[in-house]
Design a protein around this nucleic acid. Structure first.
Lengths: 198, 198, 198, 198
DNA sequence: AATGAATGAGATTTCATTCAT
DNA sequence: GATGAATGAAATCTCATTCAT
């Protein structure tokens, strides 16, 4: 419609249909989470995204590249703000963590990445970078600031403490235990309360 | 039929070589952990076990049944005994947990089971039952007994506390952090120390 | 049926169907000559040979290996014997050359090998070795013996002379000229007669 | 439409860049000779010619039509003139023949046309008409004139003699023998010398 | 029981061709 | 006229499973 597109390219040739990119990546992420990398097929992605298989190969060099691009769309949007109340802030972040990974079928998705470790290691790396690290870093900084202002007692390493808090999610999921909405509050209470100043 | 089976391999009547069963399951577990369920091929298992593909189907109804049988061989052998010293006992169990899952490529194996959740849910169930639950239960009972005799203060749910301790392993692995031999000690210190009576 | 097969293997497992090997190679050679290497499909070979595509991959590592095996079946059977009459012997060999390459769709087959020169050079090499070289060598030796006993005058290189005699076939085919049964006689007359002793 | 075309490229109205036609045909001929018809891709031609795939279809109905057009550009330029010395003239023409077909990857190109005989017969027809026939005719006329003025003895058919001379090239190439610069001289000596008057 | 042979179903990838700007 | 996007129709190859000895 205009003469330049998002990349500043003059509009020579047919314009790339703008919806398809997002549809492809969304379908990929869904199927990746539902079926794992190896079981996900390009045929399935194409059907779910409403494009042809050839279009997938036109836009992504290979199946791995497609999965990687989909993982890159995992964003850390709208992190809850810090209020200064350590307990409340930790609970908020735990709830956000659990909600994100539950709704996005996080456990199956992480399974897909773990299972491909030997064959396609970049998948796990991307999942770490886009889904795990940002939330983990936010949690760590939160704890660090709390300790700095004396809101936490004891000398616990904030990194280890973040692992304990977030790891509880993985352990509970693996054990088949529920991680519903009350989970964040109970987890924070169990791990954090003993470290609060009296 | 006429001789011992299941382990003995006296093999007088040459009816069935009982070693093969063990070799098949061991090969399956190895390849499952190395490649994941979907990428593991029966051809590969057969070659690694020194049998033919047809033999696999003779003994196991399907690929899923084979993987399930392999997971059933995961045993919780030689759990460290309780000494009565909560800290030392927790450290011992954490170290055992980490050692087992690290040496047996636990992360890829759990990935394989998670990734197949939708398609072959019994794999995750078996992994839980044979690899996760026994160690988790042992940890929970240890904490329960400690609380009963007053060696732990605060009202933390032993289940949640077990999740926090064991979950630290998953969180650290996912974050790409090392879980070497000192890890158990540091983890116990970070999570448990605040709960010990003064 | 017996306990050993052609390779001396004891008969463990299902016997390989003895017809299929020959049927596959015959179908391959036919389609190679009809369609060329690149246009020949494994689907087509499988259908023509009455086997499944997977069987082709079971017996031959790749499409190239299949084509190479087919070319190896080109045999130099029943070469006409030498009578001592140079003219008659040359005519007989030229006729054999033309007949073989005409009935076996020689020109298309050689085209297939030439066209793949850059991509699959072993095809041309095999065609040379199995279809061209034996007949060429026979012609060369025939001429050499004739010269040795004085049945040919002049100092012509037997190799070059063989090329001239056999090459006439290629040149005529390329020019769209017929190479029917009288062709061998006329060619021998044109090239050879001037060299016969008066 | 308003300016010259086909070669001029005055390009005032920017209606069509006439260079592109030549670039396309040159690229096609090169790739046809390098890869054969079936393996040559329009993508490759477009890239080599610096145009888009769609442009190819705009100017040529199909891949076959493109290849045919490229073959039509094969020209018989600058044939060596006749000097009246049969031997020298034949050597000159043989050398021209060998040089042309060697430098232009003639063997692969002819292979491409032969291999497509069943599927796209016009390719071979065009190759004959543009690459083979002119040189063959020139050779034939040369021999005919020589015979008419008594420079050749014996009653050899000039057509067959031309086949023998030019065919030696194909036979030597097929046999893997070199056709270097001395080849023309040796070939003429072997085939022609016995026919020269004493 | 055990094995090698055989196969149907399907996976990724390629490519000539058409579409829309 | 020219182009980048899009696609339908294959082609090669893989694999869990069944067959026949």
């Amino acid at each position: 419609m205009e003469t330049t597109d998002a990349d500043g390219c003059r509009g020579r040739g047919r314009r790339r249909c703008p919806d398809k990119g997002a549809a492809i990546l969304a379908a990929t992420l869904t199927l990746l989470a539902e079926q794992g990398f190896a079981r996900m097929t390009l045929e399935g992605v194409a059907r779910a995204a409403g494009v042809s298989k050839a279009t997938l190969h036109l836009r992504f060099r290979s199946k791995s590249a497609l999965a990687a691009a989909a993982l890159r769309t995992l964003r850390h949007d709208a992190a809850p703000p810090d209020t200064g109340d350590v307990s409340a802030d930790v609970v908020a972040r735990l709830a956000d963590f659990a909600a994100t990974l539950t709704q996005a079928r996080g456990t199956t998705l992480i399974g897909a990445c773990l299972a491909e470790q030997a064959h396609t290691p970049e998948l796990l790396e991307l999942f770490r970078e886009h889904a795990v690290r940002p939330r983990r870093e936010a949690m760590r900084r939160l704890l660090e600031r709390a300790r700095a202002r004396g809101a936490l007692v004891g000398g616990a390493d904030p990194d280890l403490l973040a692992s304990a808090l977030l790891g509880t999610f993985w352990a509970d999921r693996l054990a088949g235990r529920s991680t519903d909405r009350d989970w964040a509050r109970r987890t924070a209470a169990a791990v954090l309360d003993p470290m609060l100043p009296p």
